[in-house]
């Protein structure tokens, strides 16, 4: 509760929260506002926003309603963001906790693997995974999660390393507590706040990664994602730039909202910073 009050004290995180709520609201009411399939032909192609009251954000090159695609795209982007982040954070915590807690050879092996992943640019790795396993929405989401775990893993490991020899952990060890309980019950709850904060960064990056894939035409073409819309607008970007610009703004707003919320969480969960400013 105290953390929540600290969160609400500065304006930027509140703005982030409001924007994020707006995006979530868009995703939730997409079916009510635009009950038709957003990918269905709706009218004459390339109508500028404002010229036709039926399509207040205009239509794209195939005559599909941009506003409908934005609303339905919010679902896809958020879903990909949340699921990919959950995968990345879960993998990262598991690997980081085991490496940090056991140390020695286990740690060396796991960290070398992590470094191997980190030396490859994750977008290239993502391209390879999508090229090999296909580009339906599930594969794309899992692949994004699979390329995003190294940073959370390193962060978790660092936290666990500093916690595992604290006296309260030693005390539980002398009580006869097993390793699994030590990690899950004693160490992780104290190690998690920075990892949770970092999740916002992972989520923002996940949304951008999907958009980048879609822009290259490598994401699932059968879903109305913002990236797909940018991709289809690419061919007419010099004359009808709004086709790419409108979903671009949507991505910008969502990523900004997620990062602002992350920063707010950081300030709220990190009591050492609370008295600064």
């Amino acid at each position: 509760m105290a953390a929540f009050r600290r969160y609400l004290r500065s304006p930027a995180p509140v703005l982030g929260l409001v924007l994020l709520m707006a995006v979530i609201a868009m995703a939730l009411c997409a079916d009510l506002v635009f009950p038709r399939d957003p990918l269905a032909l709706a009218g004459r192609p390339l109508q500028w926003p404002g010229t036709n009251p039926r399509f207040w954000l205009g239509t794209d090159g195939s005559g599909r309603d941009i506003a409908a695609q934005i609303f339905h795209g919010a679902r896809v982007s958020l879903l990909i963001g949340v699921v990919a982040t959950a995968i990345a954070i879960a993998l990262g915590i598991a690997i980081g906790a085991v490496a940090g807690f056991y140390g020695g050879g286990v740690d060396t092996v796991l960290m070398r693997v992590t470094e191997a992943f980190q030396t490859l640019p994750n977008f290239i790795l993502l391209l390879v995974l999508v090229a090999v396993f296909g580009s339906d929405i599930v594969t794309v989401t899992v692949s994004i999660g699979a390329v995003s775990w190294p940073a959370p893993a390193r962060l978790t490991r660092a936290e666990v390393l500093s916690l595992r020899n604290r006296e309260f952990v030693l005390a539980c060890r002398t009580l006869g507590m097993g390793d699994l309980r030590l990690i899950l019950g004693e160490i992780l709850p104290n190690a998690l706040p920075p990892v949770i904060v970092y999740a916002s960064v992972v989520m923002a990056v996940a949304i951008l990664l999907e958009s980048a894939l879609a822009f290259l035409g490598l994401s699932d073409p059968n879903v109305a994602s913002w990236g797909n819309l940018i991709g289809t607008g690419r061919t007419v970007i010099r004359s009808e730039w709004y086709v790419s610009a409108i979903p671009g703004v949507a991505i910008l707003v969502t990523v900004l909202a997620v990062s602002l919320v992350g920063q707010g969480l950081n300030d709220a969960l990190n009591p050492r910073l609370k008295e600064r400013t």
């Binding site: 006296e167 309260f168 030693l170 005390a171 006869g176 507590m177 104290n190």
Partner: peptide, 23 residues
């Protein structure tokens, strides 16, 4: 075996701030 016999020897630690899980 040690975990089962842990009750035989128990310890009180030095640092009253670090020796209790804050959560």
């Amino acid at each position: 075996r040690l975990r089962r016999e842990a009750r035989r020897v128990q310890m009180v630690f030095q640092d009253p701030f670090a020796s209790l899980n804050p959560r």
